[in-house]
């Protein structure tokens, strides 16, 4: 009854047909490799390399036209200063000093973040404490604490480590905590279904499930720490006679060796890029990307 009335809506029914799909027909293109040029253009690294070379050429051209090495040295001068500083062993030494401080601060920051997050996950009050502290301290640039740190810890590595810890701690704690909280209820139930609880539950379910957020926290923490460190070293940094990269830049500026200043900045950028692209990128491709958990 219903079907009949539905079919009747069409006044003149269209004919039905069934076709054989042809097998031997010559299609224009079914699958054809792209040209070398197209493939090169699809490669992100190739595009970026091209841009870098172009920017370098513009820099060289502008600096030569300006012809004032005190304002903008040419790219070639900068590179020469860079190789020279590396050859003398000065730049690597300074970089090592910086990185050593950074790693200390980073490690302490991570440890404290772990303590805070664990407390927040265990007690309701700990949760409130973490939320209050992160909302207070996260907007505060760590470097603003340096004057205070100098009074508390004196002119030494400890002051720098203090501000680095401060810059790492809140970013990592905030991300880890929100990662834990956003683990789906289904996964939690699955974990408990198979008898996991306490530490086993945290290490086998919560941490891997929250890993994308944790990794983001680690990356942001690293970036904050690196910036804070260089800034702190610029303010002062030669407590024990051998400062880090920030101090290297500051000294060069005082001696008006502007190409060396540029070389120092170049090193800061390079180390940042290396850590971001080699270390974090490879952790990412081995974990969250392979698992399809990229957020």
């Amino acid at each position: 009854m219903n079907d009949a009335s539905r079919a009747a809506v069409q006044s003149n029914p269209r004919p039905e047909y069934i076709l054989q799909t042809e097998l031997n027909k010559e299609f224009g293109v079914v699958e054809k490799p792209l040209t070398t040029w197209e493939r090169l253009y699809n490669n992100g690294a190739a595009r970026k390399t091209f841009l870098l070379v172009a920017l370098g050429l513009i820099w060289e051209w502008y600096a030569q036209r300006l012809n004032n090495p005190l304002l903008v040295p040419t790219l070639s001068e900068t590179l020469a200063a860079f190789w020279n500083a590396i050859y003398r062993g000065e730049l690597p030494g300074r970089a090592v000093t910086s990185i050593r401080l950074l790693l200390q601060g980073y490690a302490i920051g991570l440890g404290l973040a772990l303590v805070f997050t664990a407390t927040a996950m265990t007690f309701r009050l700990g949760n409130d404490l973490l939320e209050t502290l992160t909302s207070m301290f996260n907007p505060l640039p760590a470097i603003a604490l340096l004057p205070l740190a100098l009074i508390w810890f004196g002119l030494g590595d400890n002051s720098i480590i203090f501000v680095v810890v401060h810059s790492v701690l809140w970013a990592v704690a905030l991300n880890t905590h929100s990662g834990f909280r956003s683990v789906s209820n289904t996964l939690r139930m699955v974990g408990r279904n198979y008898g996991l609880g306490g530490i086993g539950f945290v290490t086998k379910v919560l941490i891997p499930a929250a890993f994308p957020s944790i990794l983001t926290g680690l990356k942001i923490g690293w970036a904050f720490a690196w910036r804070t460190l260089i800034a702190a070293e610029l303010v002062y940094g030669a407590a024990s006679g051998k400062g880090g990269l920030g101090w290297f830049i500051y000294e060069a500026k005082n001696q008006l060796e502007i190409p060396v200043v540029f070389a120092g900045l170049f090193t800061v950028i390079m180390i940042g890029l290396l850590v971001e692209n080699l270390i974090f990128r490879s952790i990412e491709s081995r974990t969250v990307r392979r698992w399809g958990m990229q957020t």
């Binding site: 289904t186 279904n193 198979y194 958990m293």
Partner: peptide, 30 residues
Amino acid sequence: GPDRCMVFQEFDQLLPWKTVKRNVMFGLES
């Protein structure tokens, strides 16, 4: 407890960081 095993509606009940085999082993080992 593992004497009552749940199968949920949501697809995210699998642990995304484990392969199919490891997911099935997860219950047995945990």
